[in-house]
Amino acid sequence: MPDLRLTDAALTPLRTGLTSAADALTGSRGRTVSLAAAALGAPRLIARMDAVADDWGHGIGLLAESLGTAAADLTVVETRLREVDETLAVLHG
């Protein structure tokens, strides 16, 4: 199974990319929940803007968390794939 032959750095670009994307979204989340809604003027509109900003922040947080989980999964999978690779090397002879 040559497609499972891994070099040391095979999954590093993916993992680094996912972690970087997770960090970017975490930064966006922080800036989203601190949006200045007071300028809108109408109290009910300000309250809705604050609630929506919380929803956005929560959603972005989940996305960031998922990207982080995917990166962590890759770390586990990389270890597993290396073991598999050794087994497949035996199978290939």
């Binding site: 891994l6 070099t7 999954l11 993916l14 970017a24 800036r31 300028a39």
Partner: peptide, 28 residues
């Protein structure tokens, strides 16, 4: 300023989507 902030968030999130979209590994 609020509209600009929302526009900035849209750009940031869009950039992240592009970044993830182009993730890959030639070795895997």
């Amino acid at each position: 300023a609020l509209a600009r902030a929302l526009s900035d968030r849209a750009t940031e999130v869009g950039d992240t989507a592009d970044q993830v979209r182009h993730l890959g590994s030639d070795d895997w």
